[in-house]
Write a protein that binds this DNA or RNA. Structure first.
Ligand SMILES: [Zn+2]
Ligand SMILES: [Zn+2]
Ligand SMILES: [Zn+2]
Ligand SMILES: [Zn+2]
Lengths: 136, 136
DNA sequence: TTACGCAATGTAATGATATTACATATCAAG
DNA sequence: CTTGATATGTAATATCATTACATTGCGTAA
């Protein structure tokens, strides 16, 4: 198995709890929502959540949605560390669609190259209405 | 002059004060930083800033940087309402580079079309190191 | 002119998100 | 066992944003 793949066995107790919570959810969760869902499991403070999220993001298992201040489990087994990934977020049902596009990544890379900018983390988020909600 | 162009004369007193503050800054400002800079001008509460920012964003004169929870004046005379604009944000000097790319916009539009997603607002933000800071 | 309607503004309180600081626990290497 | 690195616990605080309600300013219809 490639080194960038991880399962729950790599995670500490708190990290696994947070990861499982995000995986069980049908949409993004705020840190405080995660905290509330894990109170019975012994969580008491925001920092426990934020620390776990930090590690999970570094592993590519979880993404932060900047426009929502919320977190979502990666749709793939795990995103590459530098992977430029994009999200479509439905304002109506709250679902998140994660996708990648080589051309998208390449265009941003091209702009960076011509300007000398060295990108470290890229955020691409589309807010709108998903097909299902549009039909309804 | 096209209807989507605006100058200070279209703005109320508070809106103009906030807009001038952002234009005078050399980087993005948080709402509370703007508030502090406008206390002498009579500002007392965050809501005064947020209300002005809301209007300025609607006019395309100001952009919100989601990954910073901060605001910056548009680099152009004014961005189109639906314009898909991208930002490169230097982690070192804090400067923000605003740009557009038709192909970028087109790729996102293509994904939306094939999936039936109707985008309403798109965020593209690259965090990294600008050419000048890289050299230094 | 006066009365009304509407947009903008003022003010206080509260809610939501995130970090700092410091103490304690766990565990593997030496 | 001692040490160092990583993870965790807890409290306090910092930062960002909204809700609720009162007031003001101004154009317009009666
Ligand atoms: Zn992913
Ligand atoms: Zn939907
Ligand atoms: Zn712009
Ligand atoms: Zn720089």
């Amino acid at each position: 198995m490639p080194a960038h793949h991880h399962d729950n066995s790599d995670l500490t107790k708190n990290q696994a709890l947070v990861y499982d919570t995000l995986n069980a959810a049908d949409g993004p969760l705020s840190a405080y929502t995660i905290l509330d869902q894990l109170r019975e499991a012994g969580f008491r403070a925001p920092l426990q959540v934020y620390r776990a999220l930090e590690r999970l993001q570094a592993l590519g298992l979880v993404h932060r949605l900047e426009s929502l201040n919320a977190f979502v489990a990666c749709s793939h087994p795990s995103c590459e560390e530098d992977g430029t990934v994009a999200f479509a977020i439905c304002e109506t049902c709250g679902r998140v669609f994660e996708f990648t596009d080589a051309e998208l990544k390449s265009r941003l890379g091209a702009w960076a190259k011509t300007t000398g900018f060295r990108p470290q983390k890229t955020t691409i988020e589309m807010r709108g209405i998903c097909a299902e909600c549009k039909a309804a």
